[in-house]
């Protein structure tokens, strides 16, 4: 029988996953880590990316994390995720991340300037697109 260890994935807002696994892959700051049972105790920071958990029955589950901490003990691995979602809903996670960033830009006083700059850039891009469209219409779509 293959050796397993316990995996807990928790974020500050909710518990995301808890169960047995054969192997776990996580995006640590120093590079992707593969954790097998009886790994030496380890504490590291995670980059945004996906945590893959190989379940007992060869199934694999993927979780998205936008950073966090990884704690490894020989038989227990804990992922303290900043924000983690089901891998299935990765698209939604992407959307959320973008929205979060937008909200941050809107609320963070420091980035007020960045927001204004982004708006100008956006306006410029729209103007360029419109010009291109205009030229295309003139040349009859050629």
């Amino acid at each position: 029988m293959a050796m397993t260890f316990h995996v807990d994935i928790v974020s500050a807002e909710a518990e995301i996953f808890s169960g047995k696994a054969n192997m776990l892959f996580a995006p640590a700051v120093m590079g992707e880590l593969g954790i097998a049972p009886r790994h030496t105790p380890l504490l590291t920071r995670l980059k945004p990316g996906e945590v893959r958990v190989q379940l007992e029955g060869q199934d694999e589950q993927v979780f998205f994390v936008s950073g966090g901490m990884l704690e490894v003990q020989p038989h227990v691995v804990t992922v303290l995720a900043d924000t983690a979602m089901r891998g299935k809903d990765l698209d939604e996670a992407h959307a959320l991340r973008v929205k979060e960033r937008a909200e941050k830009a809107m609320t963070d006083r420091k980035t007020d300037f960045d927001y204004a700059k982004a708006q100008i850039e956006l306006a410029e891009a729209i103007a360029q697109l419109r010009t291109i469209q205009h030229m295309r219409d003139k040349t009859g779509g050629r």
Binding site: T40, L43, T44
Partner: peptide
């Protein structure tokens, strides 16, 4: 003790802040 990556101080800073 844990192995710390990148180093104990940085990891600890992050962890305690969280």
């Amino acid at each position: 003790d844990y192995l710390y990556e990148p180093d104990a101080k940085e990891v600890m800073d992050d962890l305690l802040m969280r």
